[in-house]
């Protein structure tokens, strides 16, 4: 009887706990609903509110070759930045797993500190560094490598450089955490079975760290697709991205339905990539959980 009583009160407690949990997340729910979901709905309504008819904005965008080219540009830019980030991040993350003590702290802060500085500040810094009369050009001319200043600003080079710089940590950390999870004995087992370093890397280490590579790559790709400040400040006219186009619709041409529709096309693209990515890895591993 005592047991039954305790069990009954136990279940009551559990359902009470459920209500408690709901109560605890309620502020977050209200916040997300009022500051994100409702505005998103309003934005969607806006995208359908063109005077020419509900789907006119979408039709105009998809029909326009300029818009299509800007979207392709954005995709290409994001993909190239992602590839560069992944290639640079993998050895960096590996180095982080191998360092200990003082040098680990140094390396970790080299990755983290830029991460903490505002994107705007970092982008302006690149502008100063890459200028015609900036320190890099001065050095190159002083050391005789070139006689006239090199154009390093407002082109693909400066956009890639700036975006990779900003996005690199997003690729490094998921890779780092997946590398930490690799059991050293697996590498010993491979070596014990007669495998050379490259074989062990290709057949054991790389496959086991692939979730981290995919997670980091997906992170960078998604962020790069919506990048605005860096390509705006460091890019030239040929580096127009979707985010810049939306800004143009809002601030220059004042066609808000078009801007809203473009935003939703971009959002659709991002969600599509996210869905594709989640086929290969759990969303939890995207944020380094397991």
């Amino acid at each position: 009887m005592v047991h039954t009583l305790r069990q009954t009160s136990g279940t009551t407690l559990t359902s009470r706990e459920n209500w408690g949990t709901l109560f605890l997340i309620l502020p977050a729910l209200v916040f997300i609903a009022s500051w994100f979901l409702i505005p998103l709905g309003q934005l969607f309504a806006l995208s359908l509110s063109s005077e020419a008819g509900p789907l006119a904005s979408y039709a105009e965008l998809i029909g326009s070759s300029v818009f299509r080219r800007v979207f392709v540009n954005t995709m290409v830019l994001a993909c190239i930045v992602t590839i560069i980030c992944v290639v640079l991040a993998y050895p960096t993350a590996y180095l982080l797993t191998k360092l200990r003590g003082f040098w680990f702290s140094v390396a970790l802060y080299c990755v983290l500190v830029p991460f903490w500085i505002s994107v705007l500040v970092r982008t302006f810094s690149w502008m100063l560094l890459l200028e015609r009369n900036g320190p890099i050009n001065s050095f190159l001319m002083y050391s005789g490598i070139t006689t006239s200043p090199i154009n390093m600003l407002f082109n693909n080079f400066s956009v890639y450089l700036g975006m990779v710089h900003v996005l690199l940590p997003y690729a490094i950390f998921p890779m780092y955490s997946s590398m930490l999870r690799v059991d050293n004995r697996l590498l010993q087992a491979s070596e014990g079975l007669g495998a050379r370093g490259t074989t062990t890397f290709l057949r054991v280490y790389l496959p086991l760290t692939m979730p981290g590579v995919l997670a980091g790559g997906a992170f960078v790709l998604l962020l790069a697709l919506g990048f605005y400040i860096t390509p705006t400040l460091l890019g030239g006219l040929q580096n127009l991205t979707a985010a810049m186009l939306i800004d143009n619709f809002v601030n220059e041409r004042l066609v808000w339905p078009l801007a809203a529709a473009a935003s939703f096309i971009l959002l659709g693209l991002v969600l599509g990539i996210l869905a594709l990515a989640s086929k290969f890895l759990s969303l939890g591993s995207l944020v380094g959980m397991r």
């Binding site: 059991d183 004995r185 697996l186 010993q188 087992a189 491979s190 070596e191 014990g192 079975l193 007669g194 495998a195 050379r196 057949r203 054991v204 496959p207 086991l208």
Partner: peptide
């Protein structure tokens, strides 16, 4: 001589089976 050139067979404490390979591939590895 490094382990790979010793021709040893090693059974590890927690087996250290390659989780990305199936049973047959694990055995075939060496």
């Amino acid at each position: 001589v490094p382990p790979r050139d010793r021709n040893i067979g090693m059974v590890f404490q927690n087996y250290a089976l390659f989780p990305n390979l199936n049973v047959g591939e694990n055995v075939a590895y060496g």
